[in-house]
């Protein structure tokens, strides 16, 4: 790549990798949570709803610190992962992906929930009268029809992850080539005397990246909406 310097290239690649994994981790959990909150009445509905939104309202540093406690080498989850499976989360890009996933989670749940509420449940009933089990109805009717909403949620999560800073730097630090994503690199450059020019370059790159993602998602969502519209 000639336009980007090797360092910029590394940062962009890492950011995209972290954001992609963040969405992949968060998507199934958001889908399940959104389904639970929009389709099921249960005791403690309000509490679950509140917990889901927690990452949005508490300082990201707190999220990063909690993750560090849980996923650190001595932490309950981190210890298990490192001893039994030999996987290290803290201070690796995997940790950055998890931090981003947690921060993106409430946004994605909200977007998917809106789709669940907008779907015509009559279609699901019709599928059931045709002999489809709830499982089959979910995967052949519900998911395809809410797919524009799923894409919107994924892009929202992706964009949120690209910009994730506080939880990431607290949880996995700012390690070049491992956890130094775009915002962290930008932060480093701003801290470095004479780094302004490079900072502006990186800033432009991040704007282009985010804008590209949004345009791609809009295009995709329109195409799919045309497919599933009544």
């Amino acid at each position: 790549m000639t336009i980007l310097s090797p360092l910029e290239y590394e940062v962009v690649l890492l950011s995209v990798q972290v954001a992609t994994w963040s969405v992949l981790i968060s998507m199934p959990l958001s889908l399940a949570t959104a389904w639970l909150l929009s389709r099921r009445q249960f005791y403690g509905h309000l509490i679950v709803d509140g917990l889901v939104h927690l990452p949005m309202v508490i300082p990201p540093v707190v999220v990063g610190y909690v993750l560090l406690i849980l996923f650190g080498r001595q932490g309950p989850i981190g210890g298990f992962l490192s001893e039994v499976l030999g996987i290290t989360i803290a201070f690796t890009w995997k940790g950055a992906a998890i931090a981003s996933a947690v921060m993106a989670f409430p946004l994605m749940v909200r977007a998917i929930r809106l789709s669940f509420q907008a779907i015509d449940e009559g279609l699901e009933e019709a599928a059931a009268t045709l002999g489809a089990s709830p499982f089959r109805v979910f995967f052949t009717i519900t998911i395809p029809i809410i797919s524009p909403g799923l894409i919107a949620a994924a892009i929202l999560g992706f964009a949120r992850s690209l910009g994730e800073f506080g939880a990431t730097i607290t949880f996995v630090s700012n390690i070049p080539g491992e956890t130094r994503t775009l915002p962290l690199a930008l932060f480093t450059l701003i801290q470095t005397p004479g780094g302004d020019a490079a900072a502006v370059r990186l800033l432009s790159i991040s704007v282009i990246l985010a804008l590209g993602a949004l345009i791609a998602s809009e295009y995709l969502a329109r195409r799919i909406t045309r497919q599933v519209k009544r």
Binding site: G122, E125, A126, L130, G131, V137, P144, I145, V228
Partner: peptide, 20 residues
Amino acid sequence: LPIYKRQIGYVFQDDRLFPH
């Protein structure tokens, strides 16, 4: 018996065809 095990066809007032 759940809906999907009843083997009863239902033609709704609105057609409810699967749009996708």
